[in-house]
Amino acid sequence: RLHIEVEGTELMKKLVEEAKRRNLNVRAKVENGKWIIEID
């Protein structure tokens, strides 16, 4: 499991799109103003 903290929506969208393209499980949520992304 990969755990990433990202500031900025554009970067988050790119990460999520790339993960979906590779058929990975992606969860994204906002915590303290940062995107928290978990990829399995």
Rank of each mutant, 00 (worst) to 15 (best):
1 R>D: 08
1 R>E: 07
1 R>W: 15
1 R>H: 13
1 R>M: 14
1 R>G: 10
1 R>L: 14
1 R>V: 14
1 R>Q: 12
1 R>A: 13
1 R>K: 13
1 R>F: 14
2 L>K: 05
2 L>Q: 08
2 L>M: 07
2 L>G: 06
2 L>R: 05
2 L>W: 15
2 L>P: 07
2 L>T: 06
2 L>S: 04
2 L>V: 12
2 L>H: 08
3 H>E: 10
3 H>R: 15
3 H>D: 08
3 H>N: 10
3 H>G: 04
3 H>Q: 11
3 H>Y: 14
3 H>A: 06
3 H>S: 12
4 I>H: 03
4 I>T: 05
4 I>F: 13
4 I>V: 07
4 I>D: 03
4 I>S: 03
4 I>E: 03
5 E>L: 11
5 E>S: 10
5 E>Y: 11
5 E>W: 12
5 E>M: 12
5 E>G: 04
5 E>I: 15
5 E>N: 05
5 E>T: 12
5 E>A: 08
5 E>R: 08
6 V>M: 05
6 V>E: 03
6 V>P: 02
6 V>D: 02
6 V>W: 06
6 V>R: 03
6 V>S: 02
6 V>Y: 04
6 V>H: 04
7 E>S: 12
7 E>Q: 11
7 E>L: 14
7 E>A: 10
7 E>W: 15
7 E>R: 10
7 E>N: 13
7 E>T: 13
7 E>V: 13
7 E>H: 12
7 E>D: 11
7 E>P: 05
8 G>W: 09
8 G>Y: 10
8 G>A: 12
8 G>D: 15
8 G>P: 04
8 G>Q: 11
8 G>H: 12
8 G>V: 07
9 T>K: 10
9 T>A: 11
9 T>S: 09
9 T>G: 07
9 T>Y: 15
9 T>I: 14
9 T>W: 15
9 T>R: 11
10 E>D: 11
10 E>L: 11
10 E>R: 09
10 E>V: 07
10 E>P: 04
10 E>G: 07
10 E>A: 12
10 E>F: 08
11 L>K: 08
11 L>Q: 13
11 L>P: 03
11 L>G: 05
11 L>I: 11
11 L>M: 13
11 L>T: 11
12 M>A: 10
12 M>C: 15
12 M>I: 07
12 M>F: 06
12 M>E: 01
12 M>P: 01
12 M>D: 00
12 M>N: 01
12 M>R: 02
12 M>Q: 02
13 K>Q: 12
13 K>I: 12
13 K>F: 13
13 K>E: 13
13 K>P: 01
13 K>A: 08
13 K>T: 08
14 K>I: 12
14 K>N: 05
14 K>P: 01
14 K>S: 07
14 K>T: 06
14 K>D: 04
15 L>Y: 10
15 L>S: 00
15 L>I: 15
15 L>E: 01
15 L>T: 02
15 L>M: 07
15 L>D: 00
16 V>K: 04
16 V>Y: 08
16 V>Q: 03
16 V>C: 03
16 V>H: 02
16 V>A: 02
16 V>D: 01
16 V>M: 08
16 V>L: 09
17 E>D: 12
17 E>V: 06
17 E>W: 11
17 E>M: 12
17 E>F: 09
17 E>S: 10
17 E>P: 00
17 E>A: 14
17 E>R: 13
17 E>L: 10
18 E>F: 11
18 E>K: 05
18 E>H: 09
18 E>P: 00
18 E>W: 15
18 E>Q: 09
18 E>M: 12
18 E>S: 08
19 A>S: 02
19 A>M: 13
19 A>W: 10
19 A>R: 00
19 A>T: 01
19 A>V: 04
19 A>N: 01
19 A>C: 14
19 A>F: 14
19 A>K: 01
19 A>Q: 01
19 A>I: 07
20 K>V: 10
20 K>E: 07
20 K>Q: 08
20 K>A: 07
20 K>P: 01
20 K>G: 04
21 R>Y: 05
21 R>N: 08
21 R>K: 11
21 R>I: 08
21 R>S: 08
21 R>G: 05
21 R>L: 08
21 R>E: 05
21 R>A: 09
22 R>A: 11
22 R>M: 13
22 R>Y: 11
22 R>P: 01
22 R>V: 07
23 N>T: 03
23 N>G: 15
23 N>S: 08
23 N>P: 02
23 N>Q: 08
23 N>D: 05
23 N>K: 12
23 N>F: 10
23 N>W: 07
24 L>M: 08
24 L>T: 01
24 L>G: 02
24 L>E: 03
24 L>S: 02
24 L>W: 09
24 L>K: 05
24 L>D: 02
24 L>P: 02
24 L>N: 03
25 N>H: 13
25 N>A: 11
25 N>Q: 12
25 N>F: 11
25 N>T: 12
25 N>W: 11
25 N>D: 07
25 N>M: 10
26 V>W: 09
26 V>E: 00
26 V>G: 01
26 V>I: 05
26 V>L: 04
26 V>R: 00
26 V>N: 00
26 V>Q: 00
26 V>K: 00
27 R>S: 14
27 R>G: 04
27 R>W: 13
27 R>Y: 14
27 R>M: 10
27 R>D: 05
27 R>H: 13
27 R>V: 14
27 R>A: 10
27 R>T: 15
27 R>Q: 12
28 A>G: 03
28 A>H: 04
28 A>Q: 04
28 A>N: 02
28 A>T: 13
28 A>D: 01
28 A>L: 13
28 A>V: 15
28 A>W: 10
28 A>K: 03
28 A>I: 15
28 A>M: 13
29 K>W: 15
29 K>C: 03
29 K>H: 15
29 K>P: 00
29 K>T: 13
29 K>V: 10
29 K>G: 04
29 K>Q: 07
29 K>F: 15
29 K>R: 14
29 K>I: 11
30 V>L: 15
30 V>F: 15
30 V>N: 14
30 V>Y: 15
30 V>C: 15
30 V>K: 15
30 V>D: 05
30 V>S: 13
30 V>I: 14
30 V>E: 15
30 V>G: 04
30 V>P: 08
31 E>Y: 09
31 E>Q: 12
31 E>T: 07
31 E>R: 09
31 E>H: 12
31 E>F: 10
31 E>M: 11
31 E>V: 14
31 E>N: 06
31 E>G: 04
31 E>S: 08
31 E>L: 12
31 E>D: 06
32 N>V: 02
32 N>K: 05
32 N>R: 05
32 N>P: 01
32 N>Q: 07
32 N>E: 05
32 N>I: 03
32 N>M: 04
32 N>L: 05
32 N>D: 08
33 G>K: 03
33 G>V: 00
33 G>T: 01
33 G>F: 02
33 G>S: 03
33 G>Q: 03
33 G>A: 02
33 G>H: 04
33 G>E: 03
33 G>M: 03
33 G>Y: 02
34 K>N: 04
34 K>Q: 05
34 K>I: 13
34 K>W: 08
34 K>E: 02
34 K>L: 09
34 K>R: 14
34 K>T: 06
34 K>G: 02
34 K>H: 09
35 W>P: 01
35 W>E: 00
35 W>M: 03
36 I>Y: 06
36 I>N: 02
36 I>S: 02
36 I>V: 09
36 I>P: 00
36 I>A: 02
36 I>W: 03
36 I>K: 04
36 I>T: 04
37 I>V: 07
37 I>K: 00
37 I>N: 00
37 I>G: 00
37 I>R: 00
37 I>Y: 01
37 I>T: 01
37 I>A: 01
37 I>E: 00
38 E>F: 10
38 E>Y: 11
38 E>K: 03
38 E>Q: 09
38 E>P: 00
38 E>M: 09
38 E>T: 13
39 I>V: 06
39 I>K: 00
39 I>H: 01
39 I>Q: 02
39 I>L: 05
39 I>F: 07
39 I>M: 05
39 I>T: 02
39 I>R: 00
39 I>P: 00
40 D>N: 09
40 D>R: 09
40 D>W: 15
40 D>L: 13
40 D>A: 09
40 D>E: 12
40 D>P: 02
40 D>G: 13
